[in-house]
């Protein structure tokens, strides 16, 4: 909680910097994260409320240091583990296997 009694993500009305007109074309891995969220929601594996709960619990430091889809994949993963779709051991093992495939996204994703 902040001094105002609101949580960090409830930032409407706070003072902040000028708006910078940043935008970028989304990378394939970012689009895939977005697609996973939408499809998992449609399939009922978790809800958008679950997504937001984890995002909000990650706190302001994650908001400043991680990109949007980095935060999203963290939340998607957390929700899937909580709901028993796979275990944290399975995730850890798979991430090690992925890393062994190569040093770039293209190599590690097998294209």
């Amino acid at each position: 909680m902040t001094a105002s009694g609101r949580r960090w993500h409830d930032m409407g009305g706070d003072a902040s910097d000028p708006v910078l007109p940043d935008e970028h074309d989304f990378a394939l891995w970012e689009k895939r994260v977005d697609a996973l969220l939408v499809l998992c929601n449609v399939k009922g594996l978790f809800t958008v409320d679950g997504l937001r709960r984890v995002l909000e619990d990650m706190g302001p430091e994650a908001f400043e240091t991680m990109s949007y889809y980095e935060r999203w994949i963290t939340s998607v993963n957390q929700n899937l583990i909580e709901n028993g779709v796979y275990t944290i051991e399975e995730l850890g093992q798979r991430m090690e296997e992925v890393k062994m495939r190569g040093n770039t996204y293209g190599d590690a994703a097998n294209g």
Partner: peptide
């Protein structure tokens, strides 16, 4: 390859 990209690949494959 970043940590988060690695996670995306692993989650998708699982």
């Amino acid at each position: 390859l970043t940590y988060w990209q690695t996670m995306e690949i692993a989650v998708r494959e699982l």
